[in-house]
Write a protein that binds this DNA or RNA. Structure first.
Lengths: 193, 193
DNA sequence: CTTAATTTTTGACATAGATAAAAAAAATTA
DNA sequence: TAATTTTTTTTATCTATGTCAAAAATTAAG
């Protein structure tokens, strides 16, 4: 890491859940590397096991999978959020997800090996993971509820609420596949209000 | 705890993810209490903050919420699974979920206070939570996919796959609300095959 | 700038699944 | 075991959203 100011972004993120000792900060700084991706660039390919986690410093990433030849968006990650192929990273096996950059991206990158090292040596990292996964789990539960008992319009409103800050940066087609509706339907919903 | 054999069930569960030291086993045994619930009994009420987690030893529990006066099943927990109101437990705030017993239930009960104590003193408990939440997160992702791009029949098949062992113990109406389809539709799907 | 490629919008039509109401079956209680 | 309540099934319509096709608008490339 050259830019010590930049890394503060991810430190601040950790510190929302845990206290970072100087030792841990040093260990993190030694292991985190910076990567950049051009808009449209593929960051992770489903034919590979995912062994990295990206923390976005600037830009927008998307996890998606292919169904019947079409890209189905699974989730979007923006500034100060992680992006990876969760199950692949956890189980060290293949999963269906691709990751690409919707905008030019600057990201911090932590390898699985380094993550494991940190979990083994810093219990507070385990806590961080437990707490932040709890938050994500909550979002998923809300999303499941939103998927089940709402009209297409309500689904879209729920999307607008959860991706409040970044919804305008995501193309309509990607939003439609994320919501499980057709882009025609979404276009009509937008036209009405 | 009187029955030392019984508590092995939950020890074995922990040991799927972590090693349990004798110290931790003792601490757990001191804190876990047994509770029983009759079929139909309300275990957790949405007007209360959830401050307990139940690990089911025998029977079947359900988390649900009320929408337009109807009970919408969120998830089911059977033997060797946890049941609680996740976000309420995590944030110490109210959430929408009720929990009831679909069958007579015998469960181990751990209070939030005791959970916190264990997290604070046993880093391996943090790891256990991280790993088991990862598994749950994977299930949720699959469920979200299943909710979005499949017909009612495919949703039902996905339910049968995920609740393979216990699907026959869950009433049709509860399954329908879990899947976000009407019970009439589910009844027709069952009739066909 | 001009052309090509991609994304979004619009229109016509089809259909899976919702809704409503009532009968049948199963489970619970007296 | 009869009576009551709850759950499931069936029948008949209705509607939101999907599908297909093509035009318009936007973005990217030469």
């Amino acid at each position: 890491m050259k830019n010590t100011e930049k890394i503060d972004l991810i430190f601040k993120h950790f510190e929302r859940h845990i206290k970072l000792s100087d030792t841990l900060k040093t260990e993190l700084a030694q292991r985190i590397i910076c990567k950049t991706f051009k808009k449209g660039e593929l960051v992770h390919h489903a034919t590979k096991v995912c062994n990295k986690s990206y923390f976005i410093q600037k830009g927008l990433m998307r996890a998606y999978f292919i169904k019947d030849g079409k890209e189905i968006s699974e989730y979007f990650s923006a500034e100060s959020e992680w992006c990876n192929s969760p199950r692949s990273l956890r189980t060290r096996q293949l999963d269906i997800y691709y990751i690409d950059a919707i905008e030019d991206v600057e990201a911090f990158c932590l390898s699985l090996v380094d993550l494991m090292y940190l979990f083994d040596h810093f219990p507070e990292m385990e806590r961080y993971a437990r707490l932040s996964m709890g938050t994500i789990l909550g979002h998923f539960m809300e999303r499941i509820t939103s998927m089940r008992f709402t009209t297409a319009k309500e689904k879209y409103n729920h999307f607008l609420a959860t991706y409040c800050d970044i919804h305008h940066r995501i193309p309509l087609g990607m939003i439609a596949s994320y919501l499980g509706i057709t882009q025609e339907t979404l276009s009509r919903i937008r036209a009405k209000k």
